[in-house]
Simulated assay, not measured.
Amino acid sequence: MDSNTIFNIQNAADFEDVALQVFNFQFKNNRVYRSFCDLLYIHPSDVTCIQQIPFLPIQFFKTRDILSSQSAIQTTFTSSGTTGNETSKHHVTDLDVYNKSFTKGFEHFYGPIEDYVILGLLPSYLERQGSSLIYMVDAMIKTSKHPESGFYLNNLEELKEALIKLDTEGKKVLLIGVSFALLDLVETYQFQLKNTIIMETGGMKGKRKELIRNELHDILKSGFGVEDIHSEYGMTELLSQAYSKGQGVFECPPWMKILTRDTEDALSIQPAEKAGGLNIIDLANINSCAFIATQDLGRVKTDGTFEVIGRFDNADIRGCNLMVL
């Protein structure tokens, strides 16, 4: 399939059509996904809408090579995991698709990356290899073309001074950070920022007690002096991201869609507004698997936006925006 088709989706009808094409393609070319569909006795001839497409449990990325392409693997993104747990592996055969996805996805909601000074506060990710989030933010830093853009590790005082200076100068700033590091920053320094977007990627990474989103955002709003905390929802197994501009309500780019499944019947798709397990269609996963049943619990609204409200019991606490109630 031509990956450009994915990024030319204009409406719901386009999405449905392309999603069914991708399903047919992956059924034929992804051995793991084909075996999964066969076990469910589901064939493309039986599938006429996206609600009938089987969603591969996300755990398969820990134990199998999920590939729909015969091309050479260009890189492998890995999850951080927790001690003693297997990590997920997402083999990427075409990095250009990922580059297009995170660039077009961010610009769909926020405008050109070049307009922003990009500051990354992602210590737990910087300290390991294979993070798709670090790859994305590093590319955004390079695209921004602002000399002030860059990563921060433990140099919080330097970051504080940069934030105050850039905000005072009226520059558009995006500070994207893991939750525990943002909390460390506001516990040490207080801000009154006017031109800065604070975007959390979730996760305490075992550094702190997990907080519900409202509690985390209230602390961050007070500490940074901003009205809203933005959020990024992504994970190793996806090549696209959803974004929230406040209140924990996420919106997907045109090539990504969220459905919820019944917690007791994994094959039953829920109606809007009913909480359930999050199933994700990420068409940027053209070369792996675009249909994933995650371990997150959430609710999809009638307008297609969604909330993450927790995780299934015994699921690993990891990754981006996987905060537990």
Score class of each variant (00 low, 15 high):
residue 208 R to W: 05
residue 40 L to V: 09
residue 169 E to L: 12
residue 203 G to Y: 00
residue 139 A to P: 02
residue 77 F to D: 00
residue 65 D to K: 15
residue 14 D to C: 07
residue 14 D to N: 09
residue 210 E to D: 14
residue 209 K to H: 13
residue 316 D to F: 08
residue 175 L to Q: 00
residue 82 T to F: 07
residue 96 D to M: 12
residue 216 L to K: 09
residue 123 P to G: 05
residue 269 I to T: 12
residue 83 T to R: 11
residue 242 A to W: 07
residue 242 A to E: 08
residue 144 S to V: 02
residue 83 T to D: 07
residue 156 L to N: 03
residue 257 K to A: 10
residue 277 G to S: 10
residue 73 I to W: 11
residue 223 G to S: 03
residue 205 K to P: 02
residue 168 T to V: 11
residue 30 N to H: 00
residue 33 Y to T: 02
residue 296 D to I: 02
residue 179 S to W: 04
residue 78 T to N: 10
residue 310 G to P: 03
residue 110 Y to G: 04
residue 89 K to W: 05
residue 145 K to T: 09
residue 314 N to Y: 04
residue 101 S to T: 03
residue 198 I to T: 04
residue 303 D to A: 05
residue 46 D to F: 15
residue 55 F to P: 04
residue 273 E to F: 02
residue 214 N to W: 11
residue 22 V to D: 03
residue 15 F to E: 02
residue 176 I to C: 01
residue 283 L to M: 07
residue 26 Q to R: 00
residue 98 Y to E: 09
residue 258 I to R: 04
residue 91 H to G: 07
residue 158 E to K: 14
residue 243 Y to R: 07
residue 51 Q to T: 14
residue 260 T to I: 01
residue 41 Y to K: 13
residue 54 P to S: 01
residue 229 I to D: 03
residue 53 I to L: 01
residue 258 I to N: 02
residue 179 S to K: 03
residue 162 A to D: 15
residue 209 K to E: 08
residue 142 K to D: 09
residue 224 F to Q: 03
residue 171 K to Y: 07
residue 66 I to R: 07
residue 45 S to P: 00
residue 52 Q to D: 08
residue 209 K to Y: 11
residue 4 N to E: 15
residue 177 G to P: 01
residue 153 L to N: 13
residue 164 I to V: 15
residue 92 V to D: 06
residue 180 F to Q: 03
residue 313 D to Q: 12
residue 129 Q to H: 15
residue 190 Q to D: 07
residue 163 L to I: 08
residue 227 E to H: 11
residue 251 E to N: 13
